[in-house]
Structures are given as C-alpha cells and as structure tokens.
Amino acid sequence: MTVPLPEALDEIVGDFQAMPERQRLELLLEFSQDLPALPERLAAHREAMEPVVECQSPLFLLVEVEPPGASGVVRLHFDAPAEAPTTRGFAGILHAGLDGLSPAEVLAVPDDMPQRLGLATAISPLRLNGMAGMLFRIKRQVREKSGQPA
C-alpha cells in the first residue's frame, strides 16, 4: 500500500497518470506557465532564498509558515527563469499541490512522490532528481519553521 497524497497533489498525479506519455509533457509545460511569480517583497531579497542544487537549472525556494508553528499554513515561493520550463513545471506541481496545507500534511508527503507522475520514461529519472530535491528541501524548511521534529 502506498502512502496517500494530499488531495490536491493526488489529483495532479492522477491527471498525469491518466494521460499518454506525450501529453504528460504538455501538462508539465502548463504547470510551468502557471507557476506564480515571486511576490515583490521577496524578489528584492533573493539572497534569503535557498538554491536547489539538484535542479539542472537555477531554482530558488522559500517556505513560509504563517503563523510560524505547527498550526500555521505553509506558503511556497519559487523563483526559476523562463528558460528552465522543466524546473518551473516541477515547482508549479508542488505549488499547486502543497501551498496552503498544514505543516503536518506537507511533511507526510512521501519522498517518492515525483516518481508517481509517470514522467521517468518521458524525461529521464535523472531529471526527476530536481523535483525530489525541491520536495526534500521544502520539507526541511517546513520542519524548521513549524517546530516539528525531524
């Protein structure tokens, strides 16, 4: 039995799995286009964001828990250039699937979630490492900012 995903993320994974391989790339492209822009208050402080080195292209990540603590809400912020649509697509999926959840819900997301999108043959397992790296770092920041045990 695989660990269940939060509802929104589960729907996204279901959408990917329901599509033929070719269309999965198109869906990923849509997520890259829908990734929200960085709020201005953060755009001026990119140095406060965490670089995700597992991504092939530069991506910066910042997690906020509002209010800080276990009962807060997780807010995700990403910054990646338009020339990196795959990286943006991964970020878009995580944003659509995890933004607004509780810290406990985000921490419960299984680390193998990127493997469930059915993208390994279309884009290579190596490229999925970038998404695994993002998820890993999101969970670490959530832990730090919500006072959850590691």
């Binding site: 790339l25 198109e26 990923l28 492209l29 890259s32 338009a82 649509p85 279309a122 884009i123």
Partner: peptide, 20 residues
C-alpha cells in the same frame, strides 16, 4: 531542459533528446 523545445523553436526544427 526537456521542455524548452515545446515553448517555441526554430520553424521546422525537430527535437532530439540526449537522454530518452
């Protein structure tokens, strides 16, 4: 980037992917 071609390419160009 495996999606870059899909965002727009030289007219008539085909994609070739090193990995897949």
């Amino acid at each position: 980037d495996v999606l870059l071609y899909e965002t727009g390419h030289v007219p008539g160009a085909l994609k070739i992917d090193w990995f897949t």
